[in-house]
């Protein structure tokens, strides 16, 4: 393998293009997380309420996302939106929609679990002080639950970031799609470019996800003590 293939990073504006692709992945992940976490919090609270119908529907919603692989979700949105519903959004919006719904389902379960694991005595002492149901959520349950759920939330974020690797499949110019273009363009001159480009993308993903995983692990260890 000729060593000079590493030059492919610096030929033309290749490096800048890779970073630009990375940015596409990052903003889609960030926006999906933001929408998904807000929606998921609402759904999670609803799942702790006594209404059986709501709980059943939301449980089914969660199970749907548990069963269907993310890649299939992406295709569902990609094909059904324009073909059956005649909604012609840019692909990146569709990705945000698919990811947000998925995140909201997963997060609703995290929120529900966290709220239910706040000790009953906390709920009772809140009620004894005359707090209404919504005040109880706002001042007692949610703040405590949020702390409990933070490690799981960070782990969910790392999964969303890893899942952005699928964006190229619905023709979004993400970091991998741009990497492929660079590989193809340089195939004649540097046959080993594929090794370097995919290696770089591998490291870029690791560089984003590893610190987050580490943070989640530290937080979880601290909570155990």
């Amino acid at each position: 393998m000729e060593h000079s293939a590493i030059n492919v990073f610096f030929a033309g504006n290749n490096f800048a293009r890779i970073l630009q692709g990375l940015w596409t992945s990052v903003w889609i992940a960030a926006l999906s997380l933001l929408i998904g976490l807000v929606l998921g919090t609402l759904l999670g609270i609803l799942r702790t309420l006594p209404n059986k119908t709501i709980r059943f529907i939301l449980r089914a919603y969660l199970e749907f996302f548990r069963i269907v692989p993310t890649i299939v979700l992406l295709y569902l949105v990609y094909y059904i939106l324009p073909r059956s519903l005649h909604i012609n959004w840019p692909a990146s919006w569709m990705a945000v929609l698919a990811f947000s719904l998925w995140v909201s389902a997963e997060f609703s379960d995290i929120v529900r679990g966290a709220i239910e694991s706040v000790p009953v005595t906390q709920k009772e002492s809140g009620q004894a002080l005359g707090l209404s149901a919504s005040q109880l959520f706002r001042y007692v349950l949610l703040p405590q639950a949020m702390q409990l759920e933070l490690p799981a939330t960070i782990n969910l974020a790392t999964r969303v970031i890893k899942t952005t690797s699928l964006l190229m499949l619905i023709s979004i110019m993400d970091v991998i799609a741009i990497g492929q273009q660079i590989i193809e363009a340089n195939n004649q001159q540097y046959p080993s470019a594929v090794f370097w480009i995919y290696g770089l993308i591998f490291i870029l993903y690791f560089a984003i996800d590893y610190p987050l995983s580490l943070w989640a692990k530290r937080l979880a260890a601290k909570q155990k003590r």
Binding site: T158, S165, L166, I176, V194, F195, Y198, F202, Y205
Partner: peptide, 18 residues
Amino acid sequence: NTPLLIQLFFLYYAFPVI
């Protein structure tokens, strides 16, 4: 901390180079 897709691309497309 890395996506399976990239791991597969590496195995399938990059390993033949070496």
